[in-house]
Amino acid sequence: MEKQELIEQLKLQIIEQLNLEDIEPSDIGNDEPLFGDGLGLDSIDALELIVLLEKEYGIKVEDPKEGKKIFVSVTTLADFIIANKK
């Protein structure tokens, strides 16, 4: 899968997994921060993103602190998946 295609797929999956009902994929910028001022995700969302990674991409993240680096933006998340997918 192309990276851009993966990014678009991730946006849909994030909206679905995190119940972001009033947000469209186009509302999420590729490099926009997912946490804090950007999309405003919180610590429970971070744990749900770990579930998403395992369920959809077979990648396990055991230490939630690791997630901080991975979940900076949709782009960093896509890069992580490309680098770790088996």
Binding site: D45, L47, E48, V51, K55
Partner: peptide, 11 residues
């Protein structure tokens, strides 16, 4: 089998 316990539901 194909599910992973969800923290967002558990809370």
């Amino acid at each position: 089998e194909d599910e992973i316990p969800s923290p967002a539901i558990f809370v």
